[in-house]
Every structure is written in C-alpha cells, then in structure tokens.
Write a protein that binds this DNA or RNA. Structure first.
Lengths: 205, 205
DNA sequence: AGATTGAACGATTTGTTGAACGTTCAGAAA
DNA sequence: TTTCTGAACGTTCAACAAATCGTTCAATCT
C-alpha cells in the first residue's frame, strides 16, 4: 500500500513535468511510463487512464491552495466581511495567475472541465465547507445571520461564477475583474447582513 | 432608402428561415441570394458579410424581447423587488426555451458570441438602461437607495452571468436554474435594500 | 450615372490516408 | 501467485488534396 502510494506519486510527478512542459495532448503515456522506468501498460495498475492522472495533479494542486485559503481566513481580528473578501480575491488572483503564467495549465484546466464536469463539482463542494464555516463564525459574532448556510454558500458561488475561471469566459484584465468582484461582493455581503434585520422573509430554514 | 430597408428585411427573412432550418454553417450565401432572387454579390450591398446577417437577426429578436420585458416591468402596483425578479426570471425562461427548442439557434448564438464579442456588450448596455430606470423608480418609492446606478446595474449583471446563456456553461435543468436565480436575487436585492441603511460606506458616487 | 451580375480568388472545410496514440491482455518475470 | 511487460487492437490525429464557400470586382444591364 505504501509502495503503491509512492509509485502513484512518482507517476504524478513525471506526468506533471511533461504536462506543464509540452502540454497534456502532446505527452504520451509511453513517455510518462519511460520516465518512471516502467511499461505503458503498467500505468493502468495505478490510474484508470490518462485523464485520471491529470485529475490527480489538479486535485493535489487544489488541495494545497485550499490549505493556503484556510490559513488566510483563520487569521484573527478580521470581520466576516473581510474574510469573505480576502477569500475570493485570493482565489481570483491565484487562478488568474496560474492560467496566465503558462498555457499548458490552461489546456489542462479546459480538458478536465470539459471531460470531467464532476471534478469541478467536488471542488465546489469542498469550498462550500469553508464558506459554511465562515458563516457560522460570522453568525456567532452577530455579523450576519443566515438561514440555510449550505444553500447560501451555493448562492454565493453562483453569483461569483464569472470570476471562477476568469479567462475562460471573459477576456477581462485582472484589474477589471477585481473591480467587478469587489462590487458584487459588496452587494452580496450587504445582502447577508440584511438577513439579520428581516430574517425568515422567505429564506428556507 | 425605404427600398433598401425593404430589401434588407427580405434578406434577413430568407436568412432566418435557412439558418433555423439547416443551421448557420450549412446555409450558403448563394442560397440566401437565390431565395431573394438576386446574385450572391448583391448581398454585399446590404450587409458587410454573412455574420452581419446573423447579427441583424439576433438584434431584432433581442429588440422584440426587450420590448416585452419593458412592458412586463412597467405593470403598475409592483415593488421594485418584484420587478427585478420578474425581469430576470422572464429573461432566463425565454433564452432557455429558445436555446432548448432548436439546436440551430444554439449554433447561431455560439457563433455570434465567439466571433462578435462586442455584440453581447451592446445587448448588456441596453439591458442596463432598463435596470437603471428600475432603480430610479425604486429609489423614488424609497425601496432602495443606490449610489452609482450604472455601476450597480453592472454588478447585478455580473452576479447573474451564470443564468445568461444557461446551457452554454452549466447543464442544469430549468427548475434548478430557477431555484438558484431565486436565491441569488434574494441576496442581491437584500443587498440593494441594505444600502439604504448605511449608504456611502464605500459605494462609488 | 447607379444597380446588378457571376466568374474568379483565396480561405476554409471536407474527405482520405497513414501514422501515432491510449488502452488492453496474453504471457513473461518475479 | 502476483507483478509487470510489450505487442496488438481500435480510435484519434495530422497531413495533404479536392471541393466548397465567402467575398470581390470587372463587366453588364437599366
């Protein structure tokens, strides 16, 4: 088992190098296998297919970024408002620069988004956990009082969809995206605060 | 001039029939010209190119829909909240059914969106005019007080981007989209109402 | 004159062929 | 037995040819 995990990591490492140097489409399973000193067929004992290697790479990268994000929002002495803002600003900047830096990452993101829509859903669900935590915290401090927090988190994600894979949908520059994100967040957070005032006006419990 | 406009409409009509029957890519300029009893070359006295015919078709369709939307939101005895809701719900349902009904419309929308990004921007700008009107009206009734209304309209559009060309981004069903639109709108409108309370807390003037 | 045509041009698409690729699995190696 | 290999399979991709299409413009018509 420990053996298997090591080999898996070795494969992921080799694939990551190839993918980000030459692109996902241009690297062959044979090459990745050769880098790991094994035959192409043997890769399939560790991954169901090529796409699953890419998914694994994306998954660990995302996990690392989520760890950073968790750290960021757990800094003491911040309002819930600031936490939400910092969270989504960091997320926007991070993915923007990732996709900007090299086109290979952009290619991988596109392939995974197209061929594995479920992947994005899992990432969203993980993000929602953090958002719910933040709302619980903010409610304890009386900053805003939300009914169904899981649902509210989903709505926030919906409203910020445009900023998720920035250069995939709009070709806006980062400053313009930041300006818009700022504006939308202000509206949303004001909305959250308002629920404190006239709660139970329709929000599901 | 009156002559020219008639011919233009004739071309638009013929092209619309062809495009929605056989698709944009599969209809040739020669066919459209033949339907209008003229030579292919003559089309270019009325339109710069094939894409501009498609744009004209989309433009009049959008104009008609906007007229319906204006009518809808001018119904008396409605709160600003209801007006905003009705506006975007009608918009979501309308475009969803358009794109659902026949794949040819979907094809046309994709082509225009990809090759003529400016077109969408013009449509957005027209929509914003209506939104600003609504906000002015709502402010007069003391329902919500927004600072820079053009900017706020832009932010609302940003937050509702996901519901704009529904089946282009997400493959959600209409009921799921409606549920999400409802939730996001609630947050946003609460946000608008909140600005009445603590105005000038950062909203640009 | 201005309006219209349709043949001609270059770009894009289509059809086809051969190589390359992802994946599998019977068998070799351990 | 379990682990791994590499040739074999069907699919996909790349390159080239032919055909088609959008667009132009010199010639024609009104």
């Amino acid at each position: 088992m420990a053996e298997k995990d090591t080999v898996r990591e070795q494969i992921i490492d080799a694939a990551k190098k190839r993918f980000s140097h030459f692109g996902y489409a241009k690297t062959t399973m044979a090459e990745v296998a050769a880098d790991c000193s094994m035959s192409p067929g043997n890769l399939y004992r560790f991954f169901p297919g090529k796409l699953d290697i890419a998914e694994a790479i994306a998954s660990v990268a995302r996990e690392e970024h989520l760890k950073d994000l968790r750290k960021l929002i757990n800094e003491p002495g911040k309002s819930g408002r600031d936490r939400l803002r910092d969270f989504f600003f960091e997320e926007l900047r991070h993915t923007y620069h990732m996709l900007e830096k090299n086109p290979r990452v952009y290619e991988m993101a596109s392939v995974i988004a197209n061929e594995r829509p479920e992947f994005a859903n899992r990432m969203f669900a993980e993000e929602r956990k953090i958002l719910v935590e933040m709302m619980v915290e903010a409610e304890r401090h009386g900053e805003f009082k939300t009914g169904d927090k899981e649902f509210t988190a989903e709505m926030i994600q919906s409203a910020l969809m445009k900023f998720r894979y920035p250069q995939l949908w709009s070709k806006l520059t980062l400053p313009k995206l930041e300006r818009e994100l700022d504006g939308v967040l202000k509206l949303l957070i004001d909305g959250l605060c308002a629920q404190k005032a006239h709660h139970s006006t329709g929000q599901a419990a």
